[in-house]
Simulated assay, not measured.
Amino acid sequence: MTAAQSTRTRQTPLWIAGLAGLTALAYWAFLGWDRQKETDPVTGAETGPYQAWQLIGLGVVLALLVFEAGRRGRPWLAGVVVPVVLTVAFSLDAATSPDGDGLWVIGAVLVLLGSALGTGVVAGLGAALGRRTR
């Protein structure tokens, strides 16, 4: 094992903690505080609780985080940690919602699959750019 590989291995727990912490922070900053559903007065249909800007903001922040992790040579780590933490945060939030209808498990599966696909693509792009600039 070279010195660079040894340093890289020692830094892995820091990367895991950083990616997990920043993902959880981004989730709670954009989505975790909002539980208010909107009811259309004409149709009575409920929407929400999230607005488009919240989802876009979370997506942009996580994309930047994952891209940078990929660029710095950690695409697999980002591709695992971010979807898992995002799914756990969503699951905790949805399962404890007072207006929950019990369908949060389906939402959690969709969050896991969608975020795994998205992080895989973005981390791969970051890794490709990182290799190209080295």
Rank of each mutant, 00 (worst) to 15 (best):
A123Q: 09
T2Q: 05
A78W: 02
T2A: 06
V105A: 13
G57T: 02
A128G: 07
A4Q: 14
V121A: 09
W53Y: 09
V42Y: 01
L103Y: 15
G114C: 08
L19W: 02
G18E: 12
A89Y: 00
Y50F: 09
G118D: 05
V60R: 07
P98H: 13
T12E: 14
E38W: 14
F67M: 09
V85D: 09
R134I: 00
V105S: 08
D93R: 05
G57A: 08
D40A: 07
P41D: 12
A123Y: 03
G59R: 03
A94H: 03
L31K: 07
P98A: 13
P41F: 07
T96P: 03
P41C: 06
T96G: 08
L110N: 12
E38L: 14
P98E: 12
A78L: 04
D101M: 12
L19S: 11
A123N: 04
P41T: 01
M1A: 10
S97A: 15
T12I: 08
P13W: 01
P75R: 11
Q54K: 06
A89S: 05
T43N: 07
G124R: 10
V109K: 13
R8S: 13
A128H: 01
K37A: 12
R134G: 06
L117W: 14
I16R: 00
G126L: 01
L103I: 08
T96N: 13
G126Q: 10
L77F: 13
G21P: 03
V80L: 14
F30K: 01
D40E: 03
G73N: 09
A3Q: 14
L62D: 09
A29Q: 12
Q5M: 10
V109Y: 14
L22C: 14
